[in-house]
Simulated scan of single mutants.
Amino acid sequence: MSQPNSTNVFPALFILQGIPGLEHAYLYMAFGFTLVYITSVIGNFTLLFIIKIDRSLHEPMYLFLCMLSFNDLVLSSSTTPKMLGILWFNSKEIYSEACLTQLFFLHSFCIMESALLVAMAFDRYVAICNPLRYTSILTKWLITKIGLLTVSRAVLLMSPLPFLIKRLPFCSVNVIHHSYCEHMAVIKLACADTTFNNIYGIVVVFFIVGLDLIFIVWSYVLILRAVFRLASREARCKSLGTCASHVCAILVFYIPGVLTSIVHRFGKNVPIHIHILLANVYLMLPPLIDPIVYGVKTKQIRNRIRSVFNIDFICSNSVCSNMAISHSTQLPDFNPERKI
């Protein structure tokens, strides 16, 4: 039976509901989310800046880290500004084209993040299991191909999504019960059978998460086998220490993502604001934690950050004045009439 409130015209705009049920706490959440977002942006830009200016960090591990930091910046910036607009200014309207664009970027960069974690697992495998061939295997050309493959896979998998949504007839209600445009939240508004869209989303999630996790787990099985073959305990601890940051990044990305998917699909009695808060944590936590973990755990980055701040501190106190004195006394004044 056809529904009288359906239309074949795609809505001109959607209304993002935000976090229903927590409107009284919007101001507190806005302050917290703004602080998290600013910290994430500063942290990831700092990593990119440090790796760019230090040529000793132009190695495969840090190039992958640059890709991860850039991906985190885009991932958080694709949803957080609009969410903050809702919390701060109650700006809930979003044009349909902007909604589909946000949806595409959101899911694409989630897929890229997963692929980059796989690439970094491969990097750790080569560094520990084949250290003498590390630079010969992970050449800049191979890293470039991995980066292009990461982007291509995400774009190919997510490009059909906006078109699959636009083909659906939508009801007169255009209110999205979420703080950003997410695939499942948008297709719930359609007045048609969305089985194909649901199956496509589930297949992509299981294909990406399942396949990538298999590669990551297999890499660490080989890493642990190589590590436990080392003679000294100190060497084993040092080798495992190089993987600590990557393991933290894996846990921070996959655990909230899997938990969000489980609650969304099976937690029918869970309040909607819990679903939305988990989804926001899933997107905001990795960009916040990754630069902190790599900045603290990676010795080269930590030392470089310290040296930058030490240089600035010294220059601001005594060196700058000494440089000014030496500059005034180092060379004689130039006199064009003076003969040599």
Rank of each mutant, 00 (worst) to 15 (best):
G210W: 08
L35T: 12
I38L: 12
I289A: 02
R236C: 04
L48I: 06
N8H: 14
A279E: 05
C110D: 05
G201F: 11
L48P: 02
V36S: 01
P287N: 08
D123C: 06
K166Y: 10
H177L: 13
V186D: 01
S172R: 13
A127T: 02
I38K: 11
S179W: 03
E59D: 07
F207Y: 15
L224Y: 13
P169K: 02
R229S: 12
K82F: 00
C181E: 02
E337T: 09
K82L: 02
M67C: 11
G257H: 04
F105C: 06
L22E: 13
L211H: 07
K238I: 09
L116Q: 11
D212E: 14
I53W: 11
A244F: 14
T39S: 14
A154G: 07
N90Q: 09
I199R: 06
K52F: 06
M323G: 01
L240R: 04
P169Y: 11
S239Q: 12
K52S: 08
P332T: 09
D193G: 11
F253A: 09
L222K: 15
D212C: 15
L138R: 06
D312C: 09
L168F: 12
T80F: 03
L63W: 10
P131H: 06
R265S: 02
F253Y: 08
I202G: 10
F266S: 11
H273P: 04
T79S: 03
M184I: 15
F31H: 05
L148P: 02
A30W: 00
L211V: 03
T144Y: 12
M120F: 12
T80D: 05
F104H: 14
R338A: 08
L251C: 03
Y134W: 05
K52M: 01
I214E: 03
I289V: 08
L149C: 13
L331A: 07
L57H: 03
V258A: 06
K92E: 01
V319P: 04
S172I: 05
L157N: 06
F334A: 05
L48G: 01
Y220W: 06
R124Y: 09
F31K: 08
S239N: 07
R124S: 08
A279V: 06
L230H: 07
N317C: 07
V173I: 10
R167D: 09
V9D: 14
L278H: 00
F206W: 15
T34I: 05
D72Y: 08
S179V: 02
F206T: 02
V126E: 00
I208F: 08
I51P: 00
F122H: 12
S114W: 03
L65S: 05
C237V: 10
I187W: 02
V203G: 11
V296A: 10
P332S: 07
L168S: 13
Y28K: 13
P169N: 10
Y28W: 14
D193T: 01
L138Y: 00
P11E: 11
S40P: 01
L75F: 09
K238T: 10
Q17R: 14
Q330H: 15
S321P: 05
T242W: 04
E59V: 06
S159N: 07
S114P: 04
C243A: 13
Y134D: 01
A98H: 02
T298Q: 09
